[in-house]
């Protein structure tokens, strides 16, 4: 019976050579997912891309787009709206990534520990997580920033505090689904210890779901942070911030519409880019 039939290991999908076949959905997903990198590069290069200093008046106030050397117009004291938007996008993008990374790490750790240890540790950690999830995250974030005093750091802390429980739930869910599979028991019988099982036999299986959630979440965060900033819970006055720039200039809406509208559009552009990229990552990781 020990006849060895010839066996060739097929290449896994992610090692297949990159094809540029534009009819293949995979190609489009790769292009879409790379938007994350493209947007990060743009955010990094904001100082190079901006035609003017965002903080300094450089021309006539309230110039319409295309006039007075302002591509997207100028605000009430003659600052370049385009430059302010580019800097604002940079701040929003990195803020969103920082919160996601924080949530991913804290939530992932909590979820991993809870799911792989089970028992009372699991119960305790998940009750705490559920407690957070039972409260409306955005409202809680507003309360936290408002009481600590408006500042960019406080906003980031507040949003991270209310954001990680989502990741804890997802990672814990995936881990406990995996933990019920016999492969974990087989590993136990093979002599693997708790930590090894958690890191080698459980964690890699939970990562795809967590990564998909995280990439779909960037857009949500961009919008949530813009909302906080709009309520005045972001950086203080002269700093370029999209939500605040729009809120402060609402009174100009019916006359100089571009001043409040353009920063809002910048938020929407960020969110659309993030959503397209997030969708693409999901399609790449688990194609229906």
């Amino acid at each position: 019976m020990a006849v060895a039939e010839p066996f060739v290991v097929p290449r896994p999908a992610w090692r297949r050579p990159l094809s540029l076949d534009l009819r293949a959905p995979r190609t489009w997903s790769i292009i879409g997912a790379s938007l994350f990198a493209v947007m990060t590069l743009i955010a990094l290069a904001a100082p190079l891309l901006s035609p003017h200093d965002p903080l300094v008046p450089v021309g006539i106030p309230l110039a319409a787009p295309g006039h007075g050397g302002f591509l997207l117009g100028s605000d009430s004291i003659g600052r370049d709206v385009l430059s302010r938007c580019l800097y604002g996008m940079r701040a929003s993008w990195f803020a969103a990534l920082v919160v996601i990374a924080g949530g991913f790490l804290i939530g992932g750790l909590v979820g991993l520990v809870a799911g792989s240890s089970g028992g009372w540790i699991d119960n305790l950690l998940m009750r705490i997580t559920d407690g957070f999830l039972a409260l409306p995250a955005p409202v809680l974030a507003i309360a936290v920033v408002a009481s600590l005093g408006p500042s960019f750091t406080h906003t980031l802390i507040a949003v991270s505090v209310v954001w990680w429980p989502f990741y804890a739930r997802i990672v814990r869910g995936e881990i406990s689904k995996l933990a019920a599979r016999p492969h974990v028991e087989a590993a136990r019988l093979a002599g693997a210890g708790r930590v090894r099982i958690a890191l080698r036999h459980l964690l890699p299986g939970a990562l795809p779901a967590a990564v998909v959630t995280a990439s779909l979440d960037v857009g949500n965060l961009v919008l949530a942070l813009a909302g906080l900033s709009f309520l005045g819970l972001g950086q203080s006055a002269p700093a370029p911030e999209l939500g605040a720039d729009s809120a402060r200039n609402l009174s100009l809406l019916l006359q100089q519409w571009w001043v409040p509208v353009v920063p809002g559009i910048a938020v929407a552009v960020l969110a659309v880019i993030a959503n397209v990229a997030g969708d693409s990552v999901r399609n790449l990781i688990d194609p229906e």
């Binding site: 709009f230 729009s246 809406l253 809002g264 929407a268 659309v272």
Partner: peptide, 13 residues
Amino acid sequence: SVPTFLLGVFGIL
């Protein structure tokens, strides 16, 4: 994908 405040602003315009 559009922030709530921008939807409002567009609506008013």
